[in-house]
Nucleic acid binder design. Structure first.
Lengths: 146, 146
DNA sequence: TTATATTAGTTTACACATCAACTAGTTTTA
DNA sequence: TAAAACTAGTTGATGTGTAAACTAATATAA
């Protein structure tokens, strides 16, 4: 059955690409004692100071339960603080501490070089085509959600 | 920095596509009380009877430690058996039990329909282009491994 | 042949992810 | 305004993934 073959091939490639990228980032971030999710939390909170748990979860593509746990750990490590939202006392605003900001700046500076090096392995035109099709597939998948 | 933007966009799309596909498969398989990894183990052992842990791990794109744990659970559920390899007593041959085979057949039959339905949402030509570029990216990532 | 290195699989400790049930505020609505 | 429905975040149970240290069998090599 042709569809299944194409599906498996695609799924295999995508999983493999995703894991490769993930592993390389993991490797890069381990120098700073950071995991991918923690670094992304630093990034998102830096770019959206005052963000709440639910919006952060959406950016991270994970559940709020997961976010709660990781943010708690980062709080006790002194990288983040939260302040209750006075307008809605169920929710919190998240901010980087000075330590969190410093760490973010430090990692981000090297991260740019890391990404540039990684990207230099690829043909830019092909990547643009790939990005375009990826976005289209993403949209179809979102709208065909079971 | 342009490269970082393209990188993030690509990484985001790929992760999102991967998660969507994963979640849909998860949903589909939950009817049969199977997780994705378990179903893939059934599939690979069915297609490669007598396979050992390391080769199976390679097909699953995961570590052998992870394979050990999941295979053990599936053994105690009566879906798999292993027999020591008489030619190399460190290793085992894996086989589906009759129950494992029956379950695989049952799920696989429905799985084909599920994949065909999913694939019908997409333009075939685009998917072929996408598969081709994916394979190229995969190769570059494999060879540029840190 | 004995010592050394390698290999298959296991185990431990950890990070991260889910779902579903829960608490406590907020909003809706009757 | 009091009851009902909803929402933000938390928690507990579970599954899946890793890396690294381990055991036991096999292969290499002195």
């Amino acid at each position: 059955m042709v569809n299944v073959d194409l599906y498996r091939k695609l799924y295999g490639s995508i999983k493999s690409i995703f894991l490769h990228i993930d592993n390389q980032e993991k490797e890069f971030l381990s120098k700073f004692d950071l995991t991918i999710t923690r670094f992304y939390i630093l990034t998102h909170v830096n770019n959206n100071p005052g963000i709440n748990y639910i919006d952060l979860s959406e950016l991270l593509l994970c559940t709020k339960g997961n976010t709660t746990r990781i943010v708690s750990a980062m709080q006790s490590e002194g990288l983040l603080v939260r302040r209750i939202n006075p307008g809605d006392r169920r929710s919190y605003h998240l901010y980087l501490t000075e330590r969190g900001e410093d760490l973010f700046e430090e990692v981000h500076a090297e991260y740019l070089g890391y990404i540039n090096e990684l990207m230099s392995n690829f043909n830019e035109e092909k990547l643009n085509t790939y990005a375009k099709i990826s976005t289209q597939i993403e949209k179809v998948l979102e709208s065909s959600q079971i």
